[in-house]
Structures are given as structure tokens and as C-alpha cells.
């Protein structure tokens, strides 16, 4: 079963940007695309730990601010020649609010 928890208002996240949610096991980056889709990814680049939440968001991808690896927001997989992936979490919007999958987040903190 999934329990979605209300995280913030959609407008707290800039379009083509991200904000961070703190959890026990590290930060999760919540992205908002130009067309208001939201995605939640672990905020830690598999390359050298760069904060993906600070990257430039383009289409449904983000470019890591430290060494420019590009990740697909929906799968968390690195694009092009780079190999690696970050964990993704279910996210959705409803009534102008953003919800994240609490079950996964807790599992993550339990693990």
C-alpha cells in the first residue's frame, strides 16, 4: 500500500527548478518541469555526490551542477555515455499540492 503525504504547495517549487525534502537518510530533490509535472529523486549524484536539486532542469531531465551528468527525471538513469542511476520516488500533484510516497521514503530510512 502506498500512502502519499502532502509535502508542499506546487508553487513553492519554481518551474524548471527543484526544492529539497530532508529525510533521515538524506535529501530528496523534488523537481517541477516547465509543464508542471513533478518528480522526486535522491539528491545525490552517483558520480561524486553533487546536489541534483541545484542542476538546470530541461524537458524532463536535469544536468548535475558539478560535472554535468544528465539524468532522466522519470527513471533516474544517467543519459548518454555516463553510467549510473539515482533512486526515484513516486510523486504527484493534486489541488495545487505536491504529494510524495511516504512508504518508499520510510522504507528508505529503515534500510
Amino acid at each position: 500500500m502506498t500512502a502519499m503525504i502532502d509535502i508542499a504547495a506546487l508553487d513553492d517549487i519554481p518551474r524548471q527548478g527543484a526544492r529539497v525534502v530532508k529525510t533521515d537518510a538524506g535529501c530528496v530533490a523534488v523537481f517541477r518541469t516547465a509543464d508542471d509535472q513533478v518528480f522526486a529523486l535522491e539528491d545525490r549524484c552517483p558520480h561524486k555526490g553533487g546536489p541534483l536539486s541545484e542542476g538546470i532542469v530541461h524537458g524532463t531531465s536535469v544536468t548535475c551542477p558539478l560535472h554535468a551528468w544528465v539524468f532522466d527525471l522519470s527513471t533516474g538513469v544517467a543519459q548518454g555515455a555516463d553510467e549510473g542511476a539515482v533512486r526515484t520516488f513516486a510523486a504527484r500533484t493534486e489541488g495545487g499540492r505536491v504529494f510524495l510516497d511516504a512508504t518508499r521514503l520510510r522504507q528508505r530510512s529503515a534500510a
Binding site: K48, G50, E54, I56, P65
Partner: peptide
Amino acid sequence: DRQSRFVNERNHANIQKDG
């Protein structure tokens, strides 16, 4: 367009290797 700025210019500070 702030969202089209590289992190350093968006945050008006230089990002370090540890964030």
C-alpha cells in the same frame, strides 16, 4: 530567467565539491 542560470549564478555563491 533564474532557472536558466548555472547554480553559482542562481545562488550567488560558488558551489563547493561537498555542496
